[in-house]
């Protein structure tokens, strides 16, 4: 194992994601990435388009499996799980926030928030209460019967955050959460995320926006499928590339 902290929440070791391996068109979206994230961290993964940060997000979110490498999430090796097992992990451990919100347009706000709880098998009044609590935390308690089409982009993204929150996940994965929002509402969303982190939720944010990544306590920069900067590392590798000292 690498020198990652013992008992880390997320443990990527030597992860490769290779498309068309062995062909001339071979693409190494992730090229031997190792990363360790502990409970309660607020990490921003930054990089240019095509750097491999989306692949990173997909692997971290168990939406995709690595070609090679080990991924331990909360003590469980998830690199070689099956479809339904991965779905279970996503449902219990991870909350997703997408750039395009990805709410189901036919459902009301509360129904959208209830969806992951339904898949978890939570029933009746309890499920409704949990969904209402989550909407309350993002300040949309009074909008719970609205459909996505009746809400602004910022409100929709807050519903998406509530959906991610509803199951009390260990990690919230946010993929360009402010990408489709104007700067003021974007800031509001970032504030909510910061607030969540303050209460102990691990947040992994993927962005190309420096202003957004500034908010994170730790920044991981990816380029050509490799980590080129990690402000959270104490072995000096991060400092080396970042060109600055770090405690």
């Amino acid at each position: 194992m690498s020198g990652a902290a013992h008992g880390a929440l997320i443990e990527l070791f030597n992860i490769y994601k290779i498309y068309n391996e062995g062909f001339e068109s071979e693409v190494r979206a992730l090229d031997g990435v190792s990363l360790s994230i502990s409970q309660g961290e607020y990490v921003a993964i930054v990089g240019a388009s095509g750097s491999g940060k989306s692949t990173m997000m997909n692997i971290l979110g168990c939406l995709d499996i690595p070609t090679y490498g080990e991924y331990t999430l909360n003590g469980q090796n998830v690199a070689d799980l099956y479809d339904d097992e991965l779905a279970r992990v996503r449902n219990r451990q991870i909350g997703f926030i997408f750039q395009g919100f990805n709410l189901l347009s036919g459902l009301t706000a509360i129904e959208n928030v209830e969806l992951p709880l339904i898949y978890q098998g939570v029933h009746g009044a309890k499920r409704q209460q949990m969904a209402m609590d989550a909407l309350d935390r993002v300040g949309l308690f009074d909008r719970m019967d609205h459909k996505p089409g009746q809400m602004s982009g910022g409100q929709q993204q807050r519903v998406a955050i509530a959906r991610a929150l509803a199951t009390n996940p260990n990690i919230i994965l946010a993929d360009e959460p402010t990408g489709n929002l104007d700067s003021r509402t974007g800031e509001h969303v970032i504030q909510i995320l910061a607030g969540l982190n303050a209460t102990g939720t691990t947040i992994v944010l993927i962005t190309h926006d420096p202003a957004v990544s500034q908010m994170a306590k730790r920044r991981v920069r990816i380029k050509d499928g490799r980590i080129v900067e990690d402000t959270g590392l104490s072995d000096g590798r991060g400092a080396l590339t970042a060109g600055g000292g770090l405690a």
Partner: peptide, 10 residues
């Protein structure tokens, strides 16, 4: 995709 992402089994 969304349903599967948030945990819908097959």
């Amino acid at each position: 995709g969304v349903r599967k992402a948030i945990g819908a089994p097959r």
